[in-house]
Amino acid sequence: MLEVNGIKKVYEGKSRTVEAVRNLTFTLQKGEFACLVGPSGSGKTTLLKIMSGLLDPTAGEVLLDGKRVDGPPPGMAIVFQEYGRSLFPWMSVRENVELPLKQKKVPAARRKELVDESVAAVGLADVHSAYPWQLSGGMQQRVAIARAIAYEPQVLLMDEPFAAVDAQTRADLEDLVRDLWHRFQVTTLFVTHDIDESVYLGQRVIVLSSSPTVIRDDVAIDLPEERDQLHTRSSPRFAELRARVFEQIHRPVEGQAHGVATHAPDVIAPSGATAVSATSDGGH
């Protein structure tokens, strides 16, 4: 479905070059919900930008349904962290959701249907004519999510979408995202630096190291499908998974521990990861 093959990104600066991402490989199956977790500054956003075709990789390729991504592909939607800057402030909530559909040449009647459905799905039916800046941060992010859903993407990428909202809103939005994923069965890649969030949300957690980024671990999340903030988070299995992800993130990088910029170890089990992902397969 979505394949990331040997992605590497090096930023060429004037005085120094920075290797942000080093040889990343993983695959998302259709309908899968995966979380990408890594410390701040671990090149997560770089990776996401490459996957969405906003940025060219230095090496490697991204394949969506077997087709190489070189520019934003159709059928991909992104929800950015900066909700305040990703919504068009001169358009109402409704117009914001509708604009990409117009661009996709969806007929007006179907457009209305999609907009109504997705705006209602995120619980904003009664504010559809408001401007985004009249809404709270959490509600603005709901608009961005509604826009992504209405677009009927094959793949939904979310770049730390809840990093800038308060804790209670964040919990609500997490449940909303899970709910929407159940309803619409969109292949979802959710990027976060919050370990709890990554374990709670997905079927699988891909753990990244700090820069230059490599994959540390690929953990299948075998929590029950029905999850809720209280019970899931307090279950022993949740704690185990959480601990495993935590350990992987905080494991020191071999070869860099003594400050020498030798090569980091090979990417850990990237090919094994695809096997793990078979757990969720079946949507074919």
Binding site: K49, L54, P72, A77, L87, F88, L99, Q103
Partner: peptide, 12 residues
């Protein structure tokens, strides 16, 4: 830049 990226991803 975020707004511009948003427009790009929706192929506007």
């Amino acid at each position: 830049s975020v707004l511009s990226d948003t427009a790009k991803t929706y192929r506007i």
